[in-house]
Design a protein around this nucleic acid. Sequence first.
DNA 1: TATTGTTATACTCTATAACTATA
DNA 2: TATAGTTATAGAGTATAACAATA
Lengths: 150, 150
Amino acid sequence: MISDPLKDYPGYALRRASNASLALLTPRLMEHDLRVSEATVILAIFTNPKIKQSELCKLLDIASANIAPLIGRLDKRQLITRIKVDGRSQGLELSEMGKSLATQILTIIEDHERALLEKMPEPLRAPFMEAIKYLWKPDGALKGGQDETP
Amino acid sequence: MISDPLKDYPGYALRRASNASLALLTPRLMEHDLRVSEATVILAIFTNPKIKQSELCKLLDIASANIAPLIGRLDKRQLITRIKVDGRSQGLELSEMGKSLATQILTIIEDHERALLEKMPEPLRAPFMEAIKYLWKPDGALKGGQDETP
DNA sequence: TATTGTTATACTCTATAACTATA
DNA sequence: TATAGTTATAGAGTATAACAATA
Protein backbone atom coordinates (compact mmCIF):
# COMPACT_ATOMS: atom_id res chain seq x y z
CA MET A 1 0.00 0.00 0.00
CA ILE A 2 1.25 3.43 -0.94
CA SER A 3 1.47 5.98 1.86
CA ASP A 4 2.57 9.57 2.29
CA PRO A 5 5.48 9.80 4.75
CA LEU A 6 4.88 13.50 5.44
CA LYS A 7 1.14 13.53 5.96
CA ASP A 8 1.37 13.88 9.74
CA TYR A 9 3.60 16.94 9.63
CA PRO A 10 2.03 20.37 10.12
CA GLY A 11 4.05 22.29 7.55
CA TYR A 12 3.40 19.73 4.85
CA ALA A 13 -0.30 19.62 5.70
CA LEU A 14 -0.37 23.43 5.50
CA ARG A 15 1.09 23.34 2.01
CA ARG A 16 -1.33 20.69 0.78
CA ALA A 17 -4.36 22.35 2.37
CA SER A 18 -3.36 25.77 1.10
CA ASN A 19 -2.97 24.46 -2.44
CA ALA A 20 -6.35 22.75 -2.23
CA SER A 21 -7.95 25.96 -1.01
CA LEU A 22 -6.37 28.05 -3.76
CA ALA A 23 -7.47 25.54 -6.39
CA LEU A 24 -11.06 26.24 -5.36
CA LEU A 25 -10.81 30.01 -4.98
CA THR A 26 -8.71 30.88 -8.04
CA PRO A 27 -11.31 30.02 -10.71
CA ARG A 28 -14.05 31.88 -8.85
CA LEU A 29 -12.01 35.08 -8.79
CA MET A 30 -10.93 34.55 -12.38
CA GLU A 31 -14.54 35.15 -13.40
CA HIS A 32 -13.89 38.74 -12.32
CA ASP A 33 -10.50 38.78 -14.04
CA LEU A 34 -8.74 38.82 -10.69
CA ARG A 35 -5.85 36.88 -9.21
CA VAL A 36 -5.97 35.91 -5.55
CA SER A 37 -3.20 38.40 -4.78
CA GLU A 38 -5.08 41.19 -6.53
CA ALA A 39 -8.30 40.43 -4.66
CA THR A 40 -6.36 40.43 -1.39
CA VAL A 41 -4.86 43.83 -2.13
CA ILE A 42 -8.22 45.30 -3.14
CA LEU A 43 -9.79 44.19 0.14
CA ALA A 44 -6.83 45.51 2.11
CA ILE A 45 -7.28 48.94 0.48
CA PHE A 46 -11.04 48.71 1.02
CA THR A 47 -10.50 48.20 4.76
CA ASN A 48 -7.62 50.69 5.01
CA PRO A 49 -8.27 53.68 2.75
CA LYS A 50 -5.20 55.85 2.05
CA ILE A 51 -2.88 52.94 2.84
CA LYS A 52 0.57 53.31 1.27
CA GLN A 53 2.22 50.65 -0.87
CA SER A 54 4.94 50.19 1.69
CA GLU A 55 2.30 49.55 4.34
CA LEU A 56 0.55 47.05 2.09
CA CYS A 57 3.84 45.22 1.67
CA LYS A 58 4.30 44.86 5.42
CA LEU A 59 0.65 43.94 5.99
CA LEU A 60 0.50 41.24 3.33
CA ASP A 61 4.16 40.17 3.39
CA ILE A 62 4.69 40.98 -0.26
CA ALA A 63 8.00 42.30 -1.56
CA SER A 64 7.75 45.89 -2.76
CA ALA A 65 9.18 44.82 -6.09
CA ASN A 66 6.19 42.55 -6.59
CA ILE A 67 3.45 44.90 -5.49
CA ALA A 68 4.43 47.63 -7.93
CA PRO A 69 3.17 45.87 -11.08
CA LEU A 70 0.11 44.60 -9.21
CA ILE A 71 -0.88 48.14 -8.19
CA GLY A 72 -0.15 49.21 -11.75
CA ARG A 73 -2.68 46.74 -13.09
CA LEU A 74 -5.37 47.87 -10.64
CA ASP A 75 -4.63 51.47 -11.56
CA LYS A 76 -4.88 50.79 -15.28
CA ARG A 77 -8.27 49.15 -14.72
CA GLN A 78 -9.33 52.26 -12.79
CA LEU A 79 -10.12 50.24 -9.69
CA ILE A 80 -7.91 52.44 -7.48
CA THR A 81 -6.73 56.02 -7.28
CA ARG A 82 -3.36 57.18 -6.02
CA ILE A 83 -3.30 60.26 -3.83
CA LYS A 84 0.04 61.94 -3.27
CA VAL A 85 1.00 61.99 0.40
CA ASP A 86 4.43 63.47 -0.12
CA GLY A 87 6.89 63.43 -2.93
CA ARG A 88 7.74 59.78 -2.69
CA SER A 89 4.64 58.06 -1.34
CA GLN A 90 0.98 57.84 -2.25
CA GLY A 91 -2.15 56.84 -0.39
CA LEU A 92 -4.24 54.25 -2.20
CA GLU A 93 -8.02 54.37 -2.39
CA LEU A 94 -10.65 52.42 -4.26
CA SER A 95 -12.63 54.09 -7.01
CA GLU A 96 -16.41 53.63 -7.02
CA MET A 97 -15.87 50.76 -9.44
CA GLY A 98 -13.23 49.35 -7.12
CA LYS A 99 -15.54 49.53 -4.12
CA SER A 100 -18.27 47.79 -6.05
CA LEU A 101 -15.85 45.06 -7.06
CA ALA A 102 -14.62 44.79 -3.47
CA THR A 103 -18.07 43.90 -2.19
CA GLN A 104 -18.42 41.25 -4.86
CA ILE A 105 -15.00 39.82 -3.96
CA LEU A 106 -16.00 39.78 -0.32
CA THR A 107 -19.08 37.73 -1.13
CA ILE A 108 -17.02 35.18 -3.04
CA ILE A 109 -14.33 34.91 -0.38
CA GLU A 110 -16.77 34.69 2.51
CA ASP A 111 -18.61 31.90 0.76
CA HIS A 112 -15.35 30.14 -0.03
CA GLU A 113 -14.04 30.44 3.52
CA ARG A 114 -17.32 29.31 5.04
CA ALA A 115 -17.27 26.21 2.84
CA LEU A 116 -13.70 25.48 3.91
CA LEU A 117 -14.49 25.71 7.59
CA GLU A 118 -17.57 23.56 7.18
CA LYS A 119 -15.37 20.73 5.95
CA MET A 120 -14.21 20.13 9.50
CA PRO A 121 -16.35 19.11 12.50
CA GLU A 122 -17.69 22.11 14.37
CA PRO A 123 -15.77 21.52 17.63
CA LEU A 124 -12.46 21.68 15.74
CA ARG A 125 -13.09 24.99 13.99
CA ALA A 126 -12.31 27.41 16.82
CA PRO A 127 -9.17 25.55 17.98
CA PHE A 128 -7.98 25.40 14.36
CA MET A 129 -8.32 29.14 13.85
CA GLU A 130 -6.67 29.87 17.16
CA ALA A 131 -3.81 27.45 16.49
CA ILE A 132 -2.91 28.54 12.98
CA LYS A 133 -2.32 32.13 14.02
CA TYR A 134 0.76 31.03 15.89
CA LEU A 135 2.33 30.05 12.56
CA TRP A 136 2.40 33.54 11.07
CA LYS A 137 2.15 37.12 12.22
CA PRO A 138 -1.31 38.61 11.53
CA ASP A 139 -1.24 42.32 10.72
CA GLY A 140 2.41 41.93 9.84
CA ALA A 141 3.71 43.07 13.24
CA LEU A 142 2.67 46.54 12.23
CA LYS A 143 2.95 49.80 14.10
CA GLY A 144 0.68 50.44 17.06
CA GLY A 145 1.10 47.17 18.91
CA GLN A 146 3.93 46.33 21.27
CA ASP A 147 6.53 44.65 19.09
CA GLU A 148 8.91 41.95 20.15
CA THR A 149 11.89 43.83 21.62
CA PRO A 150 13.51 45.65 18.70
CA MET B 1 -4.59 51.59 12.63
CA ILE B 2 -3.95 49.27 9.74
CA SER B 3 -5.63 45.86 9.88
CA ASP B 4 -5.88 42.79 7.72
CA PRO B 5 -9.51 42.14 6.70
CA LEU B 6 -8.84 38.48 5.88
CA LYS B 7 -6.85 37.43 8.90
CA ASP B 8 -9.74 35.52 10.51
CA TYR B 9 -10.43 33.37 7.45
CA PRO B 10 -9.05 29.84 7.40
CA GLY B 11 -8.02 29.72 3.73
CA TYR B 12 -6.14 32.99 3.96
CA ALA B 13 -4.45 31.91 7.19
CA LEU B 14 -3.44 28.66 5.49
CA ARG B 15 -1.80 30.57 2.67
CA ARG B 16 0.07 32.90 5.00
CA ALA B 17 1.19 30.11 7.33
CA SER B 18 2.22 27.87 4.45
CA ASN B 19 4.31 30.66 2.93
CA ALA B 20 5.95 31.35 6.28
CA SER B 21 6.75 27.66 6.71
CA LEU B 22 8.23 27.36 3.23
CA ALA B 23 10.34 30.47 3.79
CA LEU B 24 12.01 28.63 6.67
CA LEU B 25 12.37 25.23 5.04
CA THR B 26 13.50 26.24 1.55
CA PRO B 27 16.94 27.61 2.48
CA ARG B 28 17.70 24.58 4.65
CA LEU B 29 17.05 22.20 1.78
CA MET B 30 18.90 24.46 -0.62
CA GLU B 31 22.08 23.60 1.30
CA HIS B 32 21.63 20.13 -0.21
CA ASP B 33 20.77 21.57 -3.61
CA LEU B 34 17.17 20.47 -3.24
CA ARG B 35 13.82 22.13 -3.76
CA VAL B 36 10.99 21.35 -1.38
CA SER B 37 9.18 19.45 -4.13
CA GLU B 38 12.27 17.37 -4.86
CA ALA B 39 12.77 16.51 -1.20
CA THR B 40 9.12 15.50 -0.95
CA VAL B 41 9.42 13.18 -3.94
CA ILE B 42 12.63 11.62 -2.60
CA LEU B 43 10.97 10.81 0.71
CA ALA B 44 7.91 9.41 -1.06
CA ILE B 45 10.14 7.05 -3.05
CA PHE B 46 12.09 6.20 0.11
CA THR B 47 8.86 5.13 1.83
CA ASN B 48 7.38 3.47 -1.26
CA PRO B 49 10.12 1.71 -3.23
CA LYS B 50 9.16 0.78 -6.80
CA ILE B 51 6.45 3.47 -6.86
CA LYS B 52 5.49 4.56 -10.37
CA GLN B 53 5.43 8.17 -11.53
CA SER B 54 1.69 8.03 -12.04
CA GLU B 55 1.30 6.87 -8.43
CA LEU B 56 3.56 9.66 -7.20
CA CYS B 57 1.36 12.13 -9.06
CA LYS B 58 -1.77 10.92 -7.31
CA LEU B 59 -0.08 10.70 -3.92
CA LEU B 60 1.41 14.19 -3.99
CA ASP B 61 -1.20 15.88 -6.19
CA ILE B 62 1.32 16.90 -8.82
CA ALA B 63 0.46 17.00 -12.51
CA SER B 64 2.28 14.34 -14.49
CA ALA B 65 3.59 17.04 -16.81
CA ASN B 66 5.37 18.61 -13.84
CA ILE B 67 6.84 15.50 -12.27
CA ALA B 68 8.61 14.41 -15.45
CA PRO B 69 11.37 17.05 -15.35
CA LEU B 70 11.66 16.68 -11.57
CA ILE B 71 12.30 12.93 -11.88
CA GLY B 72 14.69 13.71 -14.70
CA ARG B 73 16.78 15.93 -12.42
CA LEU B 74 16.93 13.28 -9.68
CA ASP B 75 17.91 10.69 -12.27
CA LYS B 76 20.66 12.87 -13.69
CA ARG B 77 22.06 13.33 -10.18
CA GLN B 78 21.99 9.54 -9.78
CA LEU B 79 19.75 9.77 -6.73
CA ILE B 80 17.19 7.36 -8.19
CA THR B 81 17.07 4.40 -10.54
CA ARG B 82 14.22 3.55 -12.89
CA ILE B 83 13.23 -0.10 -13.15
CA LYS B 84 11.06 -1.11 -16.07
CA VAL B 85 7.74 -2.56 -14.91
CA ASP B 86 6.24 -2.89 -18.36
CA GLY B 87 6.73 -1.11 -21.63
CA ARG B 88 5.24 2.18 -20.53
CA SER B 89 5.84 2.44 -16.78
CA GLN B 90 8.82 2.25 -14.46
CA GLY B 91 9.24 1.61 -10.75
CA LEU B 92 11.34 4.24 -8.99
CA GLU B 93 13.92 3.41 -6.35
CA LEU B 94 16.56 5.37 -4.49
CA SER B 95 20.21 4.70 -5.17
CA GLU B 96 22.52 4.30 -2.18
CA MET B 97 23.36 7.98 -2.56
CA GLY B 98 19.65 8.75 -2.72
CA LYS B 99 18.95 6.78 0.45
CA SER B 100 21.74 8.57 2.26
CA LEU B 101 20.36 11.91 1.16
CA ALA B 102 16.85 10.85 2.18
CA THR B 103 17.91 10.32 5.77
CA GLN B 104 19.54 13.73 5.84
CA ILE B 105 16.40 15.31 4.39
CA LEU B 106 14.31 13.55 6.99
CA THR B 107 16.41 15.02 9.77
CA ILE B 108 15.98 18.52 8.39
CA ILE B 109 12.25 18.17 7.86
CA GLU B 110 11.59 16.59 11.24
CA ASP B 111 13.47 19.39 12.93
CA HIS B 112 11.60 21.97 10.89
CA GLU B 113 8.20 20.43 11.59
CA ARG B 114 8.92 20.05 15.29
CA ALA B 115 9.85 23.74 15.48
CA LEU B 116 6.63 24.69 13.69
CA LEU B 117 4.45 22.72 16.06
CA GLU B 118 6.26 24.13 19.07
CA LYS B 119 5.19 27.60 18.04
CA MET B 120 1.68 26.84 19.26
CA PRO B 121 0.58 25.98 22.82
CA GLU B 122 0.67 22.25 23.45
CA PRO B 123 -3.09 21.77 23.95
CA LEU B 124 -3.75 23.17 20.46
CA ARG B 125 -1.36 20.88 18.60
CA ALA B 126 -3.44 17.71 18.40
CA PRO B 127 -6.68 19.51 17.46
CA PHE B 128 -4.79 21.46 14.81
CA MET B 129 -3.39 18.35 13.17
CA GLU B 130 -6.74 16.62 13.33
CA ALA B 131 -8.57 19.63 11.90
CA ILE B 132 -6.30 20.40 8.97
CA LYS B 133 -6.68 16.91 7.51
CA TYR B 134 -10.26 17.72 6.66
CA LEU B 135 -8.98 20.36 4.22
CA TRP B 136 -7.18 17.95 1.89
CA LYS B 137 -7.10 14.27 1.12
CA PRO B 138 -4.06 12.54 2.66
CA ASP B 139 -2.71 9.66 0.58
CA GLY B 140 -4.49 11.16 -2.40
CA ALA B 141 -7.56 8.92 -2.14
CA LEU B 142 -5.37 6.11 -3.42
CA LYS B 143 -6.22 2.53 -4.12
CA GLY B 144 -6.85 0.14 -1.25
CA GLY B 145 -9.30 2.24 0.73
CA GLN B 146 -12.98 2.51 -0.01
CA ASP B 147 -13.25 5.42 -2.41
CA GLU B 148 -16.15 7.82 -2.59
CA THR B 149 -18.66 6.19 -4.97
CA PRO B 150 -17.11 6.34 -8.44
C1' DT C 1 -9.63 3.21 -26.19
C1' DA C 2 -7.31 4.24 -22.03
C1' DT C 3 -2.94 4.73 -19.62
C1' DT C 4 1.94 6.22 -18.94
C1' DG C 5 5.20 9.25 -19.67
C1' DT C 6 7.03 13.23 -22.11
C1' DT C 7 7.62 17.95 -24.24
C1' DA C 8 6.34 22.59 -24.82
C1' DT C 9 4.27 26.50 -23.08
C1' DA C 10 2.23 29.91 -20.10
C1' DC C 11 0.75 32.01 -15.79
C1' DT C 12 1.36 33.16 -11.01
C1' DC C 13 3.99 33.98 -6.94
C1' DT C 14 8.27 34.90 -5.05
C1' DA C 15 13.17 36.71 -4.69
C1' DT C 16 17.24 39.69 -5.70
C1' DA C 17 19.63 43.46 -7.56
C1' DA C 18 19.92 47.92 -9.34
C1' DC C 19 17.94 52.26 -9.97
C1' DT C 20 15.37 57.01 -9.28
C1' DA C 21 13.48 60.30 -6.30
C1' DT C 22 12.62 62.07 -2.14
C1' DA C 23 13.12 62.75 3.10
C1' DT D 1 21.63 57.89 4.95
C1' DA D 2 17.33 55.91 4.86
C1' DT D 3 12.84 55.42 2.73
C1' DA D 4 9.25 54.85 -1.23
C1' DG D 5 8.59 53.26 -5.36
C1' DT D 6 10.01 51.20 -9.75
C1' DT D 7 12.16 48.13 -13.29
C1' DA D 8 14.31 44.02 -14.81
C1' DT D 9 15.20 39.41 -14.18
C1' DA D 10 15.22 34.85 -12.46
C1' DG D 11 13.47 30.85 -9.90
C1' DA D 12 9.82 27.90 -8.60
C1' DG D 13 4.98 25.86 -8.59
C1' DT D 14 1.15 24.98 -11.24
C1' DA D 15 -1.89 24.41 -15.49
C1' DT D 16 -3.29 22.94 -20.22
C1' DA D 17 -2.55 20.96 -24.67
C1' DA D 18 -0.48 17.87 -27.62
C1' DC D 19 2.02 13.83 -28.45
C1' DA D 20 4.33 8.88 -28.59
C1' DA D 21 4.39 4.40 -26.96
C1' DT D 22 2.09 0.81 -24.83
C1' DA D 23 -1.74 -1.87 -22.65
